[in-house]
Write a protein that binds this DNA or RNA. Structure first.
Length: 891
RNA sequence: GGGAGUUUAGCUCAGCUGGUUCAGAGCAUCUGCCUUACAAGCAGAGGGUCGGGGGUUCGAACCCCUCAACUCCCACCA
């Protein structure tokens, strides 16, 4: 069979993903096995795959594939989030391109456009996940705005309202005067700008005195309802109880005292405009100030302002400054740098604005969510996030859950024309309820709240509603089979940015509605950055397209590349070269297979098996590493688990094992390999494929089928994870390490002396007693057969001769002294130098040990085993030094 | 401003309760090899006062103090 020299990922990817789907290997239904469940953090429907998704979902797929192989009923639930703000913004922008303005559309017409758009593009990201190899149970795909899931959101709202947790209140929001909507804090971008600080003097009422305030926003003077100073400020103590006069409008306002004031800033006196600044608003609440809203939603001065009505706030800033200057009330104007909030969507300067919003009280519901993280009922990985989590949960603010948008679950609150409000599911119910208070009310006077709920108010139910959307309504005792079986889920893999927005809230909802955590482990990935440490983002243009990477390096290569550079819990500095490494690894595995399949197998009975120790060694090595890898997985140390796998395959299997068992060439012809060796090798290779499978699903499936004929459903994806032998032989591994050292030293000598690998070399062993110590020490090697294996297969040409005197290039190992006579090629000086170096090292080592042992306090305080170990080290070092000194003398 | 974290080889990171010479790995680099699985490869080698300073200890990359640089989260200064 002719097999390509390099692995072609595309062919395997196109072949196996549909194959797995066809055989329903991703499918999960409750059964009597133990479940292992992951619910995907739903990407935005509007989204396209970016590097963050890539990282996230690769980790999830690795976990789920391994769990599947460990025999769990593995279930990975996929889906998408309606992402109200992001999606609505996208649809609005799209309509704008078509010349349609959202303002001209009815709610229904807009939603029709939005749904059309979702149907058209909403599936893209899920298709992209398939390219990555994500083994989700696609039959379970959910969308947060599906009818069922939306109903659950409404049920929760009503329930929490009835419990008294949800209330309506006034709050200052980030108002986008261009978009004419409130935007969330996350959508405000703060930028440093050069602006001016205006010093304006206000007259003190009934006196000739003035007080000077400093402001960057003189246009808000018209809405001032107080002047505030610090209670300890000597400059203003005498103003207690006095009032100040606001210029132009000539309003008399109180002078208030509050420690909020920064004595150092400006003049230490602040004008207070509760309607247009969040801090001023808070001061207003505290001191019971009047609120005068002087800026209209479109950013122009409102009639309340009395002056400049209908003019834009920024034009007014200049005008009022000029007018005040003329009135002699400007003291000075300074240049200043400060931060301005801009709308992410329209780039308009955000105007803080008061509005009525719905809130969820967080104090009570957040209690169990905090407790169960602190008592480690839920693990945050890495643990450092526990502190952050605790800090947030202890200082949690009430959650503003309403949004002035159309795309999302509409708030089930109803109002009549007299200001009565009820919360219930349908208009009919609302009419009935309101009639109780207002008999006269006509149906058409009853209107539903225009706002929708925050996206997180639906996604906090995600781990529940993907399994049973009706459980909110039915109650947890009537949970369906799926929810009972899969909930709580095992792992959640997500980005740390949304620890509060989402993770904390899912935990809250879990305890509130099911009295149970939604997941046991939360693996918080790092943020994908570029080499310069910048966050990868579309706007910076520094993010490679993951699909391009897949085309270039293969899905397996990219998966390996991503995880090679992802330390647990830290950000990762991504670079394409990691994908290259991943691709190279896949190719290495491919070629290992090419070697194996090229063997001619001899089934001659009784053929001497020269590889018995190599086989024995790898069996133990494999077991040892299975334990190591398992340990890494259990701690969610993904890159460590991957690196251990990588080294096991590349170094131990390819570089050592395969080289040892590879048949010799005689007369330009490869000799056949004995069946025992062949069978063992194939079986090891299969085990390795399995261990690699979670990381590299495609190539491993491909090779699993190439290495042996298989039945249709015998696939690696559903195969069993290899089991280590119960107790691997540590001694064998040690002995082999020693052999490696000897061999490496021989290679080193070849390199230094420019001796071709083809040149035969003799390896002598030094004995002082005509061979007895040879038996004792070195025979160990040949007894174990390692020596034979390694010398013939790796060095090709080392013979094994007894000598009583050391000469030429020497090797000291735990098994004795070896040397290679280089009669034609002696460079005594070089050799002396080499041995001297080693001697020096060993002397230094001995000295450090001796110092330690000479220290009485060490001998007294350290653990006895440790002291014993030091003594042994001393003895070993002394022996080694003696041997080296003798070698040196001989030269 | 409040909180968390990071700083170890050219790069990306390990280093678990202080104790093997503990200073590691992978990549990159350098040298020699197109050796019939693989040049996306093989073999060998060279790289580091563990951010600076101080302390605790018989012993510190690890614990404490301090300084510096960077990152993230929360709140945002008129």
């Amino acid at each position: 069979m002719e097999i390509a020299k390099t692995y072609n990922p595309k062919a395997a990817e196109d072949k196996w993903y549909p194959y797995w789907m066809r055989h329903k290997f991703f499918k999960s239904e409750p059964d009597n096995r133990k479940p292992y469940t992951i619910v995907i953090p739903p990407p935005n429907v509007t989204g396209v795959l970016h590097m963050g998704h890539m990282l996230n979902n690769t980790i999830q797929d690795v976990l789920i594939r391994r769990a599947r192989m460990l025999g769990f009923n593995a279930c990975w639930v996929p889906g998408t989030d309606h992402a109200s703000i992001a999606t609505e913004a996208k649809v609005v922008a799209l309509l704008k391109e078509q010349g349609i303005n959202k303002k001209d559309l009815t709610r229904e017409a807009f939603l029709k456009h939005a749904w059309d758009w979702k149907e058209k593009y909403g599936g893209i990201i899920l298709e992209q996940l398939k390219k990555l190899g994500a083994s989700c149970d696609w039959d379970r795909t959910r969308f947060t705005m599906e009818e069922d899931l939306s109903q659950a959101v409404i049920d929760v709202f009503i329930d929490l309202y009835n419990k008294g947790y949800i209330y309506r209140g006034v709050r200052m929001v980030n108002w986008d005067p261009a978009g004419l909507t409130a935007v969330s804090d996350e959508e405000v971008i703060y930028k440093e700008v050069n602006s001016k600080l205006y010093y304006v003097k206000y007259k003190i009422e009934d006196s000739d005195e003035w007080i000077t305030i400093a402001t960057t926003r003189p246009e808000t003077i018209l809405g001032d309802t107080a002047v505030c100073v610090h209670p300890d400020d000597e400059r203003y103590k005498h103003l207690k109880g006095k009032r100040a006069i606001i210029p132009m409008v000539n309003r008399s306002v109180p002078i208030i005292f509050d420690t909020y004031i920064d004595l150092e800033f400006g003049t230490g006196a602040l004008k207070v405009t509760p309607a247009h600044d969040i801090n001023d608003y808070n001061l207003g609440l505290k001191h019971n100030l009047e609120v005068i809203d002087t800026i209209a939603p479109d950013g122009k001065m409102s009639p309340e302002a009395k002056f400049y009505v209908g003019e834009d706030r920024f034009a007014v800033r200049k005008k009022i400054a000029a007018d005040l200057e003329e009135m002699g009330q400007i003291v000075k104007i300074e240049d200043i740098k400060n931060k301005n909030g801009y709308s992410e969507r329209t780039n308009a300067v955000i105007e803080p604005k008061l509005s009525v919003q719905w809130f969820l009280k967080m104090d009570k519901v957040s209690k169990p969510a905090l407790e169960n993280v602190l008592n480690e009922n839920i693990h945050l990985i890495p643990e450092k996030f526990i502190n952050t989590y605790k800090h947030w949960m202890e200082n949690v603010h009430d959650w503003c859950i309403s949004r002035q948008l159309w795309w999302g679950q509409r708030i089930p609150a109803w109002y009549d024309n007299k200001g009565n409000a009820v919360v219930c599911k349908t208009k009919e119910e609302a009419i009935e309820k309101i009639r109780g208070a207002n008999k006269e009310v006509r149906d058409e006077d009853i209107r539903q709240d225009e706002d929708v709920l925050d996206t997180w108010f639906s996604s906090w139910l995600w781990p529940i509603t993907v399994f049973d959307p009706h459980v909110i309504k039915n109650g947890k005792d009537k949970a369906n089979k799926d929810l009972k079986y899969y909930y709580p889920t095992n792992d959640l893999v997500t980005a740390p940015e949304i620890l509060f927005f989402w993770v904390a809230r899912m935990i809250i909802a879990g305890y509130e509605y099911l009295d149970e955590k939604p997941f046991t482990n939360v693996y918080l990935t790092g943020i994908v950055r570029d080499k310069q440490g910048r966050k990868m983002s579309k706007s910076l243009g520094n993010s490679p397209d993951p699909l391009d990477l897949i085309t270039k390096y293969g899905a397996d290569g990219v998966r390996v590349g991503m995880l090679l550079c992802s330390p647990a819990g830290n950000d990762l500095m991504f670079d394409e070269s990691y994908c290259e490494q991943g691709r190279n690894f896949a190719n290495k595995v491919w070629n290992a297979f090419r070697l194996l399949q090229g063997f001619e197998v001899s089934d001659k009975i009784g053929q001497p098996n020269v590889n018995i120790k190599a086989i024995e060694w790898f069996k133990n090595k494999l077991s040892e590493q299975l334990y190591v890898i398992d340990e890494h997985y259990s701690k969610y140390r993904m890159s460590d688990a991957l690196m251990a796998t990588y080294k096991l395959v590349w170094d131990d299997f390819c570089a050592w094992y395969l080289e040892m068992i590879k048949p010799e060439f005689i007369d330009g012809k490869a000799q056949p390999i004995d069946k025992a060796t062949y069978d063992a090798s194939i079986s090891y290779f299969e085990s390795l494929l399995k261990i690699m499978h979670p990381w590299m699903p495609f190539i491993t499936e491909e090779l699993y089928h190439l290495v042996k004929e298989r039945k249709e459903k015998d696939c690696i994806i559903v195969s069993n994870w290899p089991k280590p032998i119960p107790k691997y032989d540590w001694h064998i591994l040690q002995v082999f390490e020693e052999c490696k050292n000897i061999i490496t030293t021989v290679r080193n000598i070849r390199q230094q002396k420019q001796i071709s690998p083809k040149t035969k070399l003799d390896l002598y062993i030094l004995t002082k007693d005509g061979g007895r110590s040879f038996d004792d020490a070195v025979i160990k090697l040949s007894n174990l057969n390692f020596y034979k294996d390694t010398k013939e297969k790796i060095e090709g040409a080392v013979s094994f001769i007894l000598k009583t005197e050391s000469e030429d290039s020497s090797i000291v190992s735990a098994f004795g002294e070896f040397f290679i006579p280089l009669t034609n090629n002696i460079d005594a000086d070089e050799e002396k130098e080499r041995i001297s170096k080693e001697l020096e090292y060993n002397k230094g080592f001995l000295k450090s040990v001796q110092i330690k042992l000479a220290n009485e306090r060490f001998v007294q305080n350290a653990k006895p085993e440790l002291v014993e170990l030091e003594r042994k080290k001393q003895a070993d070092a002394e022996a080694k030094i003696k041997a080296l000194e003798e070698q040196l003398k001989a030269l």
